[in-house]
Deep mutational scan, measured.
Amino acid sequence: DSWHDTVDGIELELHGADEELLKLAKELLKRGVSEEEVRRIIEELLK
């Protein structure tokens, strides 16, 4: 799946992010949310 590559990229960027955020990112990508949107959501949550 192409979203796996996206998640791997996000995981590299979010090496400090907790497991729950990564699960959320994967779930959003699986549901068709764009990579940009996922990054934006996670950045908001990390604030």
Results as ranks from 00 to 15, higher is better:
residue 1 D to R: 00
residue 1 D to E: 14
residue 2 S to R: 07
residue 2 S to I: 12
residue 2 S to A: 11
residue 2 S to Q: 11
residue 3 W to K: 07
residue 3 W to T: 11
residue 4 H to K: 13
residue 4 H to V: 11
residue 4 H to F: 12
residue 5 D to P: 14
residue 5 D to T: 12
residue 5 D to C: 05
residue 6 T to Y: 13
residue 6 T to S: 12
residue 7 V to N: 11
residue 8 D to N: 14
residue 8 D to P: 12
residue 9 G to L: 14
residue 9 G to C: 06
residue 9 G to H: 12
residue 9 G to S: 14
residue 10 I to L: 15
residue 12 L to G: 07
residue 12 L to K: 10
residue 12 L to P: 05
residue 12 L to Q: 09
residue 13 E to M: 10
residue 13 E to C: 04
residue 13 E to W: 14
residue 13 E to L: 12
residue 13 E to T: 06
residue 13 E to D: 11
residue 14 L to E: 03
residue 14 L to K: 03
residue 14 L to V: 08
residue 14 L to T: 05
residue 14 L to S: 04
residue 15 H to M: 14
residue 15 H to Q: 13
residue 15 H to S: 11
residue 16 G to Y: 13
residue 16 G to N: 08
residue 16 G to R: 02
residue 16 G to E: 09
residue 17 A to P: 04
residue 17 A to Y: 14
residue 18 D to C: 03
residue 18 D to L: 08
residue 19 E to A: 14
residue 19 E to Q: 08
residue 19 E to W: 08
residue 20 E to T: 12
residue 20 E to Q: 10
residue 20 E to M: 09
residue 21 L to K: 01
residue 21 L to V: 09
residue 21 L to C: 03
residue 21 L to S: 02
residue 22 L to G: 03
residue 22 L to E: 06
residue 22 L to W: 09
residue 22 L to Y: 09
residue 23 K to Y: 07
residue 23 K to F: 05
residue 23 K to D: 05
residue 23 K to I: 07
residue 24 L to E: 01
residue 24 L to D: 00
residue 24 L to Q: 02
residue 25 A to P: 00
residue 25 A to G: 03
residue 26 K to G: 05
residue 26 K to C: 02
residue 26 K to W: 12
residue 27 E to T: 04
residue 28 L to Y: 02
residue 28 L to P: 00
residue 28 L to W: 03
residue 29 L to D: 01
residue 29 L to W: 02
residue 29 L to F: 02
residue 29 L to M: 04
residue 29 L to C: 07
residue 30 K to P: 00
residue 30 K to F: 10
residue 31 R to P: 02
residue 31 R to E: 13
residue 31 R to N: 15
residue 31 R to K: 14
residue 31 R to G: 14
residue 32 G to K: 00
residue 32 G to T: 00
residue 33 V to G: 02
residue 33 V to E: 04
residue 33 V to R: 03
residue 33 V to A: 05
residue 34 S to N: 07
residue 34 S to T: 09
residue 35 E to H: 15
residue 35 E to N: 06
residue 35 E to M: 15
residue 36 E to F: 06
residue 37 E to H: 03
residue 38 V to P: 00
residue 39 R to Y: 11
residue 39 R to Q: 06
residue 40 R to P: 00
residue 41 I to D: 00
residue 41 I to L: 05
residue 42 I to H: 00
residue 42 I to K: 00
residue 43 E to K: 09
residue 44 E to M: 06
residue 44 E to P: 02
residue 44 E to Y: 08
residue 44 E to D: 13
residue 44 E to L: 08
residue 45 L to A: 06
residue 45 L to P: 00
residue 45 L to E: 02
residue 45 L to I: 10
residue 45 L to Q: 04
residue 45 L to H: 05
residue 46 L to K: 06
residue 47 K to D: 06
